[in-house]
Design a protein around this nucleic acid. Sequence first.
RNA 1: GCUGCUGUAGCUCAGUGGUAGAGCACUCCCUUGGUAAGGGAGAGGUCGACAGUUCAAUCCUGUCCAGCAGCACCA
Length: 649
Amino acid sequence: MAQISLTFPDGNVRDFDSGVTPAEVAASISKSLSKKAISAQVNGQHWDLQWPIDESAEIAINTLQDDAPALELIRHDLAHVMARAVQEIWPDTKVTIGPVTENGWFYDFDRAEPFTPEDLGAIEAKMKEIINARDAVRTEIWDRARARAFYEERGEGYKVELVDRIPEGADIRMYWHGEWQDLCRGPHLQSTGQLPADAFKLMGVSGAYWFGDVNRPMLQRIQGVAFRNRDDLKKYLNFLEEAAKRDHRKLGREMDLFHLQPEAPGQIFWHPNGWTVYTSLQDYMRRMQRKDGYVEVNTPQVVNRKLWEESGHWENYRENMFIVEVDEEGAREKTINALKPMNCPCHVQIFNHGLKSYRDLPLRMAEFGSCNRYEPSGALHGIMRVRGFTQDDAHIFCTFDQIEEESKKFIDFLAKIYADLGFDSWRVKLSTRPEKRVGSEESWDSMEEALANACKAAGREFEIFPGEGAFYAPKLEFVLTDAIGRDWQCGTLQLDPNLPERLDANYVGQDGEKHRPIMLHRAVLGSFERFIGILIEEHSGKLPFWLAPRQVVVASITSEADDYVHEAVAALRAAGVRAEADVRNEKINYKVREHSLGKVPVILAVGHREVEERTVTVRRLGEKQTQVRSLDEIAAELGTEATPPDLRG
RNA sequence: GCUGCUGUAGCUCAGUGGUAGAGCACUCCCUUGGUAAGGGAGAGGUCGACAGUUCAAUCCUGUCCAGCAGCACCA
């Protein structure tokens, strides 16, 4: 038997027979390690305790104390345990795949009857039974024909398909615990008894397509979350509760920002409070754009089909467009129009109106463009994914040589805005040429390089996403992370030589000849609707003062202070603060509670004392402490705070 | 769009084959109270829509609409 040497994390080297398993290695070290071991790292690769090691390697034995491997194994083994539980309860159920997810796992099943929420309890109970049975996990490598025959005999058609999908040369691993069997690449725990029976929870059942294919029948997906111990699970469930509290749909109602109703699905009824946030943000964006050399335009909502055919949207995007047919009385033919889903074709019309010279470039054309897209019903989500929305859209018409500089300028612009809006953490993705594409390799080289160079010049790191670009050009996407760790793609910078070509945009160059400009589609916020949703959730409704819809409420403690309340409100408004009076016949406790829940950042309370001294008592949201200040002083101070970031001295 | 679940007062939710309830919010009255709910009274519902079964439907069945979760989609 050949010898191999294994190097341990502490630097020790020991010799073993080739083919030794990590389980045997652990046993040779100590009995307790052998019991506690869950898996190994062999040359950095996550390794099942039962897999033989044939060559000298670095090895580390993992236990439940090792965070990453432990979580992976717990979640993965629970997926198997759940599948076994389901098949034990409903033997006619077919199993498919069950991968690990960010906080747990899911497993997709094929079964005629739907799983009900009540079934989940039964499955969970059965899973605990299986864990308590402490069955050893066993693995073997089979050849393809045997594995295939095995699953065919059992009628597990999905598994047959999986066996067929395993690439040539890769091991086909079969796993067992108890009588139950699954095809799996592993690794797994030593025994189901190593699973924490109190640190997982089934979260729900939903539909999912087999390999994401809409044409295949829908499977039933049961999802679970799992952690190393009960406390971590509790922490996670608690986190979910906290996240639910900051849901923009809930806060939108509580803060009276907007509503949606069935007559206009995916379109927003903005209430005064919400519209104040919207217009404040839009005013800010408008000022920023002007300062950065954009011109602003506005273009039609309802545009004849002809333009969409020319732009290519009719061919490629039609099922997402609202079609408007005009059937005029006595007209020879009815006209077919579409609500614009994008602004770009209209902007090219403005560009094309009149001759453009190279001296006009770069031309930065901005529009707060109202767009309508017929999004699939299942995609709608509050104000984050809607059918009617407004983009902070702009198209930069420029020459190829100007791409890099314009891109750099845009990244700087976007960085300034994200910083002003309180987002410090964001990433840049560079999506490069896809398989199916148009244009020469040289042109792709230079476009990708221009975007990469622009990032470098702006001092921004970027990740490359190969093959993710549009068929005509690469793009940058700007992803920000909110307070609960979710990613949102908001900003984008898409190069586009295609649309100017289709719509025959051109400018007269220095040489007196016609040339084709390139377009840069770009947005910072993406859409106001989605961005406001993100802002609400990021701040749990406690928006930055300059964006808060009601910045100050002046509340009377006694009705004898009512006149002074109105005087204070007038003074605040004169100072540029959005202030309201609350002179209702209610106690101050009641008013404080209500406005605190309404996320009003500042409450000024006034009673006899304040009236006499011409002061107010200031209470800021989230603070218990109050402060007595003179009315003039606080009006000036809050006036400064209410100033948008770009207008501050 | 697909699978599953849900739809009762402005909000959160209970409930029943014999046309409905609570808390909060709302209106009025009392109370003028010092920093997260003072007390009392009152008003408010075509039980998502439309069909069907039934003597009788908010409840059972079907279709549609909308919402929620996930999948798919996001040129």
